[in-house]
Structure formats: structure tokens, C-alpha cells
Amino acid sequence: MNRGQQEYYKRDYAQAKLEGKPFFPYAVYKDLLIATLAIAAVIGMSIWHRVEIGEPVNPASTDFVPRPEWYFFFLFELLKIFEGQNALMPVIMATFIVPNILMVLLIATPFIDRGPERRIEKRPFALFTGIAVIAFLGYMTHLGAGSHGGVGTDGLPLTGLDEKGQAGAELFVANQCTACHNVAGVGAPGPGPDLTNLGSQGQTPEHWAEFIKAPPGGVMPAFTTFTPQQYDEIGTFLAGLGTQYK
């Protein structure tokens, strides 16, 4: 908006106010009506859907489903998009770069779009961006709502499991690894990477045992309460995924 357009808007708005109505009661009654309806809806929802409380916290147990509130599903889903291709960069994309770009764009909107036009059908770029953002957030939230953690806890469809592999698979299922990881089509598609062919990386069982004690990248919680035998079992299981156990 150049100086003339700013002056034009100021004059036009002054005219609108001059021909306008007082704030009280004309705006106040509308505001109060909608706010009352919103609060009534909240009370209605809290009566209809009684609030619940889950299992108490047990940091030692790893029987958990790390799921955020619905309004963070879109960020949660970002983790899945950027996970898996390359070790560090993609995770930072989802956890840091993309959310911060979104925040900066949100704050900077009025400095990016400085045109004088206010009618949306005459602002094609803004219209497109608005619809794209709504579609993106809606779709990601929908995806996040659909991905229920802890799917397929009854067992993994793997063959070739020896004694150690079987014990490792049981540990894997019992500790809700499927809440974040997919193995052979069982488990959530994210936020963790698909582990179906983990063994093809050629790492030793000890490597994976160390990995789950202190996962790099920082997103995955550490599993520090297993016995040495259990570490051996789950390490063997992970090292053989896709090669020995498939």
C-alpha cells in the first residue's frame, strides 16, 4: 500500500465510522451471544463426554502411547513425512525448520501481503494460500487422528523367528514399539521409521541394544530398564529384521 492508498483507506474508514453505529449495544450483543453459545457448547461437551483419567505415570514402564492432543497432530504427522530417508536432517526439518518457518510466515503475513485490496476474490494468491493452509492442516490432523498407536499388539507376522528372535519380538510388542514403528505392515506408520528391513543395514545386535538405551536424534524415548539378556534378545531381533526374520 502506498501513501495515497493508506490515506484513501483512512478517509474511507473515517466515513464508515461516521455513518456507523455505537459499539454498545450493536457489537456487544453479537459478541455476547456467540461467546455464550461457545461456553454453553463447552459445558455441553464436558457433560456429554465426561473427562477421563488414564493410567498413572510410571516412568519405569514403557507401556505407553505417546500421542499429543489433537491440535498437535499436524506437527506429529510432519515427523512421519521427514523421518527415515537420512539420519539427522529430516528429523530437524519436522521438529524445527518447518514449524519455525510456519511461525515466521504467520507473524509476517501483513508485511508480505501489502496490497490495498481486501476482497478475497480479488486476492488470488491469498485465496490460494489460505485454502492450501486449511487443506494442509485439515489433512494432517485427519491423518494424525487416524494413526492409532499400538496397533497389532497381538503379534508380528514374521517367519524364521528362532528362540532369541521370538523373545525379542515379544519384547518389541510388549513395550509398545508398534506405537511409533511399523514392522511388516503391523504398527503405526509413524512417527518412528519403518523397521521392516532394519537388518539390511548390517548392524550388530549390540549396536541396536546401545541404540535403544540412548536413541540418537533425541525424539525416541530411551529404554533403560531391560536386563542384559533382554537387551541381547531385542538387539538380535532388530538386527535380523528383514534378513533373518521376515
Partner: peptide
Amino acid sequence: MGLTGYLLVWDQKAYWATVVAVNITASAP
């Protein structure tokens, strides 16, 4: 507000979701 309030319930879901959220924070450069 939504993020910090979630932990206070102190049930399993809240605790582990917050563990992941803080881990995500830690992964920032």
C-alpha cells in the same frame, strides 16, 4: 498452553507425549 497443560494430568499418555515433545525441543540446533 495446550502443550504445557497436557503433562499436568500426570497419566501415562500425558507423560510420554511430553517426553517426546521435550525430546523434539532438544533436537533443535
